[in-house]
């Protein structure tokens, strides 16, 4: 089944209040795209897996209330982004409690991560991305790696296109400055 047909089928199930069928299709259709979106925010596979599951649990819980004012894709990505941010903030809090720097710990663990197969240059780039504030990091990842349109990003992140462009510009400049050291 192609993506458009699948989305139509999800829509049909939602209209008929067949929530279970709609949910199963949503998981099948969006699990990979959402995973990679989350993974680029949290970096570690186990964390991404946790956040992805939490995202779908939330989707399952609120699917009945989804009013379809926005596209299902936008709604899912918004939930995933919020879940990822909440996850990071919780981790940061725990790190602060144990006098650790979350970004530094994450950066170090990336080097020994079995599921990271980037070369040295890519590791530097990831470390540079980790220096960015959360929102800038998300904007950078969505634009740089996924080439998401600003309009789409605006719907997901609930931020104006102008603000997103400015955010991306700052992010790119900061990364450029960071990688100059290497």
């Amino acid at each position: 089944m192609n993506s458009a047909a699948s989305v139509n089928k999800i829509d049909k199930h939602l209209t008929n209040k067949e929530l279970s069928e709609a949910f199963n299709l949503i998981v099948e259709e969006y699990k990979e795209r959402l995973y990679w979106h989350i993974r680029k925010i949290v970096l570690i596979h186990e964390d991404a897996d946790d956040v992805l599951q939490n995202t779908f649990i939330k989707v399952w819980r609120y699917l009945e209330k989804f009013n379809r004012d926005s596209k299902i894709y936008t709604w899912l990505f918004r939930i995933a982004t919020n879940e990822a941010i909440t996850f990071i903030n919780n981790k940061k809090k725990k790190s602060e409690d144990s006098f650790e720097n979350y970004e530094e710990t994450l950066s170090n663990s990336l080097e020994s991560d079995d599921y990271f197969e980037g070369d040295k240059a890519q590791l530097i780039l990831q470390k540079a991305i980790l220096t960015l504030p959360e929102k800038q990091r998300i904007v950078f990842n969505m634009k740089y790696f996924d080439e998401t349109k600003y309009e789409e990003m605006s719907e997901i992140l609930d931020t104006s296109v102008g603000a997103l462009k400015a955010s991306y510009h700052h992010a790119v400049k900061k990364i450029e400055n960071f990688v100059k050291q290497y």
Binding site: F116, G118, Q122, F145, I175
Partner: peptide, 12 residues
């Protein structure tokens, strides 16, 4: 940046 690092997903 893309020239230097590429934008290939380094995660698996």
């Amino acid at each position: 940046l893309k020239k230097k690092f590429g934008n290939k997903n380094p995660f698996r």
